[in-house]
Design a protein around this nucleic acid. Structure first.
Lengths: 201, 201, 201, 201
DNA sequence: TATGAATGAGCCTTCATTCAT
DNA sequence: AATGAATGAAGGCTCATTCAT
């Protein structure tokens, strides 16, 4: 019993330290392309030693995944907040999502990393699937709220895909600055929203 | 005159050798994630020495870009062939594109590489923009043929984005095999096609 | 306070390890032309891994420079020791310097490396200038002690140059063995000493 | 007989082509540090193919040596020209030599290359020794003309060494520009001249 | 003789991960 | 649990030299 409590406390502490680590890394990645960052920089940003990172994460990919999951969770929460009274329109949903992505390069960069090259093992895959399902639930909520009744899950996938595609296709369009990219991607988000809306009528 | 012809021949030979190199690399990348391949493997696959690679490409990124451009060109040609008599429907366009991507992971992997992390210099950027414009022209052709009259260019961007997004979001969905992925991505392509079609009515 | 002391200790340890690395490299260079040695050999000679070298030096040139500086310092100390009671005669100064150079090929080899081809950045250049000034101070001391009163600094430069020139001109005279070279260079040192002495009268 | 003449002609032609090669390389090295130049650049500068270089020189070091010898010969000729009526003073000799070196970095750079690291084989060594002896003869001429009667050969060596040393010690003094270096090295040359002159009185 | 594409050993450097303290 | 020095495989790239044409 005592030991359980003790363990419980220890786990809480551990989770808290892990969270701190995660947040420092996120801050760092907001300033610097995560693929060009190395462990030493991460540890320095977190104010801990390199070894400590490995006390909390088996390897860097696990940390990356955690950051990705954190972002997915964050978006989910943002959508939940929007949903409080009624589901947002596609227009609003798309703009919220694309705005978030414009401010969090890391999210779609990591999506790229895991989807295009990463090889997750079983446990991480489960976590990933779980969180993605939660996010998809919110999107599906909107889809339903928009009056679509058939194939709502797969339509949600399509909508989600389309939005991600905007970023991968135009987030770094050579020759455009951050503001121009924001505007262009939001415009595209608007179009995606509109075509999905028209379907629902 | 003579010299011109001679140079012309030499350049043709060189282009031909470059093409052979390119094709070997493409074949290799069809079997193995291009980010996990190193120069030595590429040279072995091409049956040349490491140094030879650098006789044709300044660095690996230049080779990668060339492969990407080649694929973009190939898709453009496929669409041109389709267009011969009349422009394909969205349905057909989307399925052709997604089918191609399913058979050429490298294309969207490299799109990810260049869009999410790459830093192209001026000349490569120009080549990239040029070829993408050609591809976009074909898509815009379909968009117009479908009866959309306003904002055809940006709608084309949106359609293109949406399709790319399908791959980045689901091409490696953990736990699914190649065939399942093909089916799922084609399904999503179908939905994208439909929502864009409905817009055009 | 505690942390200061701790840091102090750690820095001392680090300095000590750096010194060990330096000494192994010097030993190696005594046996083998430093330009024909590669990192792996250096690391092997030091009994550490390649990576460790880069924990202490940003690149090989930094290590080379450190070795050069170390030698300059050593000569300075030898001269200081000589100066204890009175400044050595030119004869003695020249012979000491040339003897040292005969036993430390690396010193003038590196002088050649940095002076004829190297491109030092700001910080290294400062360190180099500082140590050379210290060495020159000793030479100038002798120059003054020999009764020369005017232009002592530039005369010191001339003397220093002349001695270095002996080595670059005859240290590897083809067809002569180590002993013959030692004797010849010392003889030349004697002449340089004599002509500078005569000036001082 | 005929063949002899033919061979003779061919040899002359060959020598002429070799000379052309040599001159292009010298021009190139006047603009760019010879240690940072590669064969391709040399061949391009000469307007021939890489392979052609190897038709005239067994390896690059042979070419380098030839350039060095050429410079030594040139200096010898300059001194001969000066000597036409009477031997130049030390002052003049030293300034001529240092001026030449200031305008021909390559000469002392290559001296450094061969003396500090190079490993010449027998034949090249002979050529090197021969040309250096010719140069030394001129210097010795001056030494004698200045009234020195004993040890004239070794005094010449010492003088020669001292001058070379000026360049290796100060030719690239960090933070000084070309003109400052020219002035400083000439000043040092003046001092060397003076101390040797005083000896001769 | 001239060519220049091909060669491939060899180089320096990086960096995720480990492990003794 | 925290540390951070040590590790060493791995990687991209260079370039003098060769040799088939």
């Amino acid at each position: 019993m005592t030991e359980n409590r003790f363990n419980h406390l220890k786990r809480k502490e551990r989770d808290e330290r892990r969270r701190l680590l995660l947040e420092s890394a996120r801050d760092l990645f907001a300033r610097k392309d995560f693929l060009k960052v190395n462990v030493r920089e991460i540890s320095k940003a977190a104010g801990v030693s390199v070894g400590t990172i490995y006390n909390y994460y088996a390897d860097l990919d696990e940390l990356f995944l955690d950051i990705f999951l954190k972002s997915a969770e964050e978006i989910t929460q943002i959508l939940d907040h929007e949903n409080r009274e009624e589901f947002p329109s596609f227009e609003r949903l798309c703009k919220i999502y694309i705005s978030y992505l414009n401010q969090n390069m890391t999210f779609y960069q990591m999506m790229g990393h895991f989807m295009l090259g990463g090889e997750l093992s079983v446990e991480p895959t489960k976590k990933l699937n779980h969180i993605m399902r939660l996010l998809m639930d919110r999107i599906e909520g909107c889809v339903r709220a928009m009056g679509i009744q058939k194939d709502t899950r797969i339509v949600s996938h399509a909508l989600f895909s389309a939005l991600n595609g905007i970023m991968i296709s135009y987030a770094r369009y050579p020759g455009r600055n951050t503001e121009e990219i924001r505007r262009h991607t939001l415009k595209l988000a608007g179009i995606i929203a509109k075509v999905f809306e028209e379907k629902s009528n």
